[in-house]
């Protein structure tokens, strides 16, 4: 459990971090909470030459209100999200989600930006950013841009963030009626299936993680909803060929769980 040699730089601003990313390219990795990167480095599965620590950049760990949006700094820890009064009252679904990530130690260190950028297919946040139609704000050498959650996840551990870009904030619309339901993998406590549902008027938005290699919006469920009690049966429509499988849950069981958990979230 000893990583290969690496250099370490603590960035004091976003622009400094972007400059370092641009300079070191493939050899560099951003370090925030380190809860995915450090274990991979200790197993020498990941061996960056240089770590750019962005955890100390000021202004990246605030949670603020901006009109009808809540703006969350990428360096906010899961614990900060669990404990934020603003999030608990106006974006409760996100607090619910953060509470079921890892354990106390993980929640105290791991960050929302780090988790989204890592894009583990069994992570919890992807379901919620999708269901909430959140926007992920990234900054790079060419300036800042906003990526809609639905355009953000491209595959397993793959996102649409460019190599020189850093997630700075995540902008969520306020959500009055939403919930996250998760079936825990018994060893890692990641999501075998995680379903986020946001209800607006007579409509519903459904984000699903853990089921396919890429987290997705269950649009077939959304379309079938409006009073249709069988909407959950459409939970895996469109991802039938991308279902993940492991010794905890093969594709058949995972597909079943997806339906059960979509139903559970729709009915919650």
């Amino acid at each position: 459990m000893i990583p290969a040699k690496f250099d370490y730089i603590k960035a004091s601003s976003v622009s400094e971090a972007i400059g370092l990313l641009d300079k070191h390219g493939d050899e560099a990795k951003l370090l925030s909470g380190g809860h995915s990167l450090i274990p991979a480095m200790k197993l020498r599965l990941s061996r960056p030459e240089i770590l750019i620590d962005i955890s100390g950049i000021s202004g990246m760990n605030s949670i603020t209100e901006d009109g009808n949006e809540i703006v969350i700094g990428a360096n906010c820890t899961h614990a900060a999200i669990c404990n934020s009064d603003l999030i608990n009252s106006d974006l409760n679904i996100l607090a619910q989600t953060a509470k079921c990530i890892g354990d106390i130690q993980v929640r105290n260190r791991g960050t929302i930006g780090g988790s989204l950028a890592h894009a583990d297919p069994a992570a919890d946040y992807p379901a919620v950013v999708l269901a909430c139609d959140a926007n992920i704000v990234v900054e790079g050498k060419n300036g800042s841009r906003t990526i809609a959650a639905t355009d953000f996840f491209l595959g397993i551990f793959t996102t649409s963030i460019a190599e020189d870009e850093i997630i700075t904030t995540i902008r969520f619309p306020k959500v009055a009626n939403g919930n996250y339901q998760k079936f825990f993998q018994s060893a890692s406590r990641f999501a075998v299936v995680g379903v986020a549902v946001v209800k607006e008027g007579s409509g519903v938005k459904v984000g699903v993680t853990g089921v396919a290699g890429t987290p997705y919006r269950a649009t077939a469920v959304e379309n079938a909803y409006s009073g249709n009690s069988d909407a959950a049966s459409h939970a895996i429509e469109g991802v039938e060929d991308e279902l993940m499988s492991d010794h905890f849950a093969d594709t058949t069981y995972r597909a079943h769980l997806a339906k059960v958990y979509v139903k559970k979230a729709l009915e919650a």
Binding site: S186, A187, S188, F190, D246, H247
Partner: peptide, 21 residues
């Protein structure tokens, strides 16, 4: 919960607490 699983090539697929419950 607990089970050591080897695959067909003799690789242990439960070699960490991410997979060994």
């Amino acid at each position: 919960l607990e089970e050591v699983v080897y695959d067909g090539e003799g690789q242990m697929v439960t070699g960490s607490y991410m997979d060994y419950a």
